[in-house]
Design a binder for these strands. Structure first.
Lengths: 337, 337
DNA sequence: CTGTTAGCGCATTCAG
DNA sequence: CTGAATGCGCTAACAG
C-alpha cells in the first residue's frame, strides 16, 4: 500500500519498544511526557501512519459505518448524508455508502458487500427491507438503524420523523385555511414506505365535507408538473395541492404557471422537505421542514456511542414543522358567518 | 466484530486446509472442482465472510477509494458520486467520502484521515489543493485524480470537461443568437477554480461590440435570484443572462418573474449543468450538459485499472454540449441587413 | 512507566 | 492439486 515507516521503524528511531509507540499513538495508558515526545518526533520524522488493517485486525474494530440510501440525487438525502459524514469523521469513523435505487435486492447485495468490506453498523432508510437482510443482521449481531421514520413498535431502532402525523398536520393546516377539496401529489408508493405513511396520514385527516384525492407520479419536477397538469385537466376545481416533496411542488408551480393559474390566488400549493430553494421560489413555498441534518448527526452519534460505549441505540422522534410562507391562502368557507 | 466462522472453521468443516479454503474463496489457482464444492458448501453452512482486515493486512490492499468533494448538496456532485459508487461497487471496491466545504484545510485534514482509514487512491475536485496534500500524495505514492476539469498540462491527472471552452462556447452561442449585452452570474470564485476557468473562457470570447459583465453570488437559487435582480436594477438592459449553474438560472427565472419580465421575450437565460429539472421549468432552460455520470464511472474505472493492473491513469477530456431549449431567443442585430 | 510476547485472520510461499 | 508454515503490522495482556 505504501512504502513508509511501520511501527517498528518508529520504535527503532526513538530507541523504544513498539508497545510504547503504540501507546502514544493511541494516547492510551501512562507514558512519560518525555518519552512521548521522543515517539512523536520519530513519528513525524518517519511520517508514520498506523496501518489501519493491522489495527482493525488486532482490535476487531474497523471504525467504518455503512449507509445505504435509496438515491442520493434528492437534496434531502444529500443533506442527510453530509451530516452523517461530518459527525462520523469527527469521531474518526468513516462512512461507506451505497445506493439501493429503492430496490430490496440491490440493497441486500450492497449490504453484503459492505459487510465484506468491514462495515460495523448500518444505516438504512425506511422500514421496508428484505427479510434476508434482517436475518443477516441478526445472525451477525450487526447494529443498524432505520431512518427517516419513527416507529417505536418496530423491532429495529428507528430514528426520524413521524411521516403519518406530519402529513396529517399538513392536511389539517390546509383545512384550517378553509380548503375543502385537496389534491395530493406523491411519489411512487412502491418505492417508499415513507410516502405510504404520509398518504395514510393525509387520508386519516379527511373529514366530513373534505375531499382528499391522491395522485401518484415520478418523484421529480417533471412528475410533479405532469401530475398537477392532469389534476387541473380533471376539472375538479381543487383549491389546494399538497405535494409530498418540494421537488414535486416545484413541478406543480410550473404546471400552474403554464395553465395561467396564480398561486395562491387560484390554487394553493404546499410542499414537504423545506429544501434550500423553497423560500425563494415565487411565491415562497409553504412546506414542512424535515430535520435531515439533525437526523444525520443523531444517527451517527448514537451509533458511535453504541460501538464505543455499548450505549443502547434507541427510537428517537425528531420533529418536523410547518413553515408558513405565501403559497397557501386562506379561503372563506361557505359556512363561515 | 462478529462471532461467526473464520477460515479455520471452514477448513475444519470441509476437512481441508486453510490454504485450500483461501484458494477457492479467492477463486485463484487450480482447485479440484469437487474440493471446491466441499469448501463452498462449508462456507455456506458456516455463513463465512473473510475478514477484510486480515485480508487487507496480508495483501496490502484495502480496496477502498476516497473521494473528497466540495459539497454534496448540489445535484451535479450527487449524480457524480452516485456514478463513482456504482462503478466501484461493481469492481468490489468501496467508496469512502468526505466533504471539504471547498476549504483546502478541511480537505487536507479529511485526506489525512481517509489515508489513516486505508484509502488507496483519491478522487478530488478541481485543481486547487493545498501543497501539503500533493506532497503527501507524492511521498506515499498515492494515486489520485483531479476531476471536473481537464488540463493536460497539470502534473496530476485530470479527468473532466473543459470549463474554459464550454463557457466560451456558451457566450459564442449567445452571440450567434444576436446578443450583445450579456450578464454572467457565477458562484464564488474563491471556492472554485472551475468557476474561474469558466469566467476566463467567457471573457475570452468577448468581441468588439459585445459586453460581457460578471456577477458573483452565492451558488444557490437565492443567490441567482438576487444577482439577477440586481442586474435588472442596474438598468443596463442586458438581453441575455448566462448562469454558470442551472441552480443560479432557476433563481434568475424567479427574479425575472418577479420583475414581470418574460423569458425569452424580454431576457434570454442560459444555464450550465443540465440538471434533471432544467427541461421542465418554464420555459425549458437552454443549458450546457455536463457528463457528470460518465465522469464518475470513467474515474472509477481508471483508478481500479491502475490499482489492479498497474494501468496508467491518464488525462481524459469528456465533452459537454449545449442543449438548446426555449429560454434563449434570437435577436435581430441592428447591423443585420 | 516500559518492554516482551502472543495472537488477530488471512494470503502465500514452498513442499509434497 | 493440496497442506504446513511464515509473516503482514498492530494491540493487549503480562512482566518487570
Amino acid at each position: 500500500m505504501r512504502k513508509v515507516g511501520k511501527i517498528r521503524d518508529v520504535a527503532k528511531e526513538a530507541g523504544l519498544s513498539i508497545a510504547t509507540v503504540s501507546r502514544v499513538v493511541n494516547d492510551s495508558a501512562n507514558v512519560n511526557p518525555h518519552t512521548r515526545e521522543r515517539v512523536l518526533s520519530a513519528c513525524r520524522k518517519l511520517d508514520y501512519i498506523p496501518n489501519p488493517a493491522a489495527r482493525a485486525l488486532s482490535t476487531k474494530r474497523s471504525r467504518t459505518i455503512a449507509a445505504i440510501i435509496p438515491t442520493i440525487e434528492h437534496s434531502v438525502f444529500a443533506k442527510y448524508v453530509a451530516a452523517i459524514e461530518q459527525a462520523l469523521s469527527e469521531c474518526d469513523y468513516s462512512l461507506v455508502m451505497a445506493i439501493s435505487n429503492a430496490d430490496e435486492t440491490e440493497e441486500l447485495k450492497a449490504a453484503q458487500q459492505l459487510l465484506r468490506m468491514g462495515a460495523e453498523a448500518f444505516i438504512l432508510t425506511g422500514s421496508v427491507h428484505s427479510d434476508e437482510l434482517f436475518e443477516m443482521f441478526e445472525r451477525r449481531k450487526v447494529p443498524h438503524i432505520l431512518t427517516s421514520i419513527w416507529d417505536p413498535k418496530n423491532k429495529s431502532v428507528t430514528i426520524g420523523y413521524d411521516n403519518f402525523s406530519l402529513a396529517a398536520q399538513a392536511i389539517g393546516f390546509l383545512i384550517s385555511f378553509g380548503h375543502e377539496r385537496i389534491a395530493v401529489i406523491h411519489g411512487p408508493l412502491a418505492e417508499s414506505d415513507r410516502t405510504e405513511a404520509r398518504k395514510a396520514g393525509a387520508a386519516a385527516e379527511g373529514k366530513e365535507g373534505i375531499t382528499v384525492e391522491f395522485h401518484e407520479t415520478a418523484l421529480s419536477v417533471a412528475g410533479g408538473k405532469q401530475a398537477a397538469a392532469s389534476i387541473l385537466q380533471s376539472g375538479r376545481r381543487h383549491t389546494a395541492i399538497l405535494c409530498f416533496s418540494d421537488v414535486l411542488a416545484l413541478g406543480a408551480y410550473f404546471a400552474l404557471s403554464e395553465a395561467g393559474l396564480r398561486i395562491p390566488h387560484e390554487v394553493s400549493v404546499m410542499g414537504f422537505d423545506n429544501l434550500d430553494w423553497s423560500e425563494h421560489v415565487i411565491p415562497p413555498l409553504t412546506t414542512i421542514d424535515l430535520p435531515a441534518r439533525q437526523m444525520g448527526s443523531e444517527v451517527a452519534s448514537q451509533l458511535v456511542d453504541h460501538l464505543e460505549n455499548s450505549q443502547l441505540i434507541r427510537h428517537t422522534l425528531l420533529s418536523g414543522k410547518i413553515i408558513k410562507r405565501q403559497s397557501v391562502r386562506r379561503i372563506q368557507t361557505k359556512t363561515a358567518p
